[in-house]
Amino acid sequence: MRLQLITLAGVKVDHEVYEVVIPTVDGEIGVFPDHEPLVSVAKAGVISIRYNKDDGPDDLEYFAIGGGIIEITVGLVRILVDEADHGDDIIAAETEAALERALHMRDTAADQIDIEKSTQLIDRHAVRLKVADLNRRRRR
């Protein structure tokens, strides 16, 4: 089946894949070829892609995504997300620093808006950090 991962900044993935695991608001779903047609809402989390059937855990590719929509039709999985960062593009140290800053921002937040903003940032950077971690482990 074909996977398309589309963000506002352009198409990140457009490729034949064997399996893709997507975080949705109802929990993670794994999509294999011939999945039933489904439209669902993705939440911030990690997408993992297995390109070939015999690929081991070391060959998986990871993306950190923000919220989005998933559309599964016959032979096509389309994921529309606000942002998607490839594991290789995330620098762990930078993300960690950003997470620190976001945590600090939450602790010193003056009003509800700041708290919400910082919570969103924390979620985002936590996801990115997780992806960076997964990516690093794969390399070993």
Binding site: T24, V25, D26, E36, P37, L38, V39, S40, V41, G67, G68, I69, E71, I72, T73, V74, G75
Partner: peptide, 18 residues
Amino acid sequence: NMPEAKYEPSVGHVLKAA
């Protein structure tokens, strides 16, 4: 090729996101 699809968690939810 789009048969009746399922909408999760609900139609309204997905519609709003789209």
